[in-house]
Every structure is written in C-alpha cells, then in structure tokens.
Amino acid sequence: MKAVEFQGLEVQYGDMPALRDASGSFETAAMTAIVGPNGAGKSTLLKAALGLIPSTGRVAFFGKPLAEMRARVAYVPQRASVDWDFPVRVIDVVVQGLYRELGLLGRLRLSHRRRALDCLERVGMADYASRQIGALSGGQQQRVFLARALAQNADLYLLDEPFAGVDAATESAIIAVLKSLRDQGRSVVAVHHDLATVPAYFDRVLLLNRHVQAEGPVAETFTPEALARLYGGLLPQLS
C-alpha cells in the first residue's frame, strides 16, 4: 500500500495553474524528495494533498480518505509561515503535537510533558524547552517544528522545505531523525531544493513541474536526462 496516492490533482492560484493533473504516489517506509524548479508546485502538492488549500482531484492516505487517517499524518509547515514572536515557549509548541490525544480539555499530564521533552531530546533541543521561540535561531526553530511532528507519533511525515535557511548542524540532525523514522517503517516526504544532497539523503525522488514527470528510486529516476527535462535545460550544477 502507498503512503499517499493522488490522482488528477489540480490547483489554481488566481488564473495561474499551480498543479495540472498531478498524479503519483509516495511509498511507505521510504524517504522521498519532491524536486522541481521554482514555482513547480512542490509546496502546493503537500498543501493540496492535506486539504490546506482548495483543490480538485483524489487523494488517499494509506488507502483511505484523509479524514480517517489524520492521526497517522504529521505535517511540518515552512518555518517562514508563522510568526516566531508569538508568545509561546518551545515546550508549548511541541505539546501542540499532542492535541489529537489531549482534545479540548484533557489534562496535560506529566507523561505528556515527558514525551514532549523526549521529542525535543531527539532533535537536540531539550535544553531549550523553556525558551521563548523568538529567541531561537532559524535552525533551532526548524528543529522545534520537527519535534512537534514527532510528538504526533505519525506514520507519515510531510515536510515543507525542512532545510530552508538552516545551519549545517541542524541539517544533519534533521536528516538523522528522518532516517531513523524511515528505519522504523515510517514514511517521509520532503520538499527539497538542494539537488546535490538528494542521493545522500533520500531513497526516492518525485520530479514535479506542475504535473508529476517521474517518481522512483533515486538511482533510476534522478538521472541527468530526467533533470534536464525537468529544469528545461537550465540544470543547476550537480556536484
């Protein structure tokens, strides 16, 4: 079974098509990069699949509609999408990942707090639990977002540009966490910009330019010919 399967996904921004008849899938227990030029609809694909923006087409998570599968799906938005001056502490953000368990009025127990701290520990941020989020660097903020997703204890992690504007230490910390998730049989999908690191970081790749050009193992799909086609000959330098 696929972690995500989408068919005929269409998204329109004003009169600009952002996704045109996009069809494809993401494998379970794999790390997949979504790759494509600027404006190819990479973030849009994640948002449309999750129902964050209006779209037409069909999407299934683990073979079922999203509404039945929400507890198994964690989403890590772009770091730049929120106001980091917001008056919350690091631990408060991570606890948001427990919302589906806590509900409206469920009491936040010591065990919940411990789990949130564990998630911070896994991204190397346990010492920052009581900090105000505005006092963090970009990389630290991204790790807090990842910790919140870990607290959701999901089977599928969808990350929107997790490496945008982060330091090298954060990048390797994040990739280590994502690989451990994959090794536990969970599925990871990330919008990714740096073509050079695709083979080292990911198992599979989905080539997107408004519609899906190809999806498959990196060794077979991530070829110079496919990339030339994807980027229209303007191939960024591959190291």
Binding site: L50, L52, A67, R70, V82, Q96, Y99, L104
Partner: peptide, 17 residues
C-alpha cells in the same frame, strides 16, 4: 487549545483537522 494553535500556525491547525 485550538485557539492558540490556530493563532500561532494556521497551516498546522488545518492539518490537525
């Protein structure tokens, strides 16, 4: 709880349903 999540991060709030 939902008010705080929504106010901080609308995208995440939507993804929670």
């Amino acid at each position: 709880r939902p008010l705080v999540i929504l106010t901080f991060d609308e995208g995440f709030a939507r993804s929670l349903g």
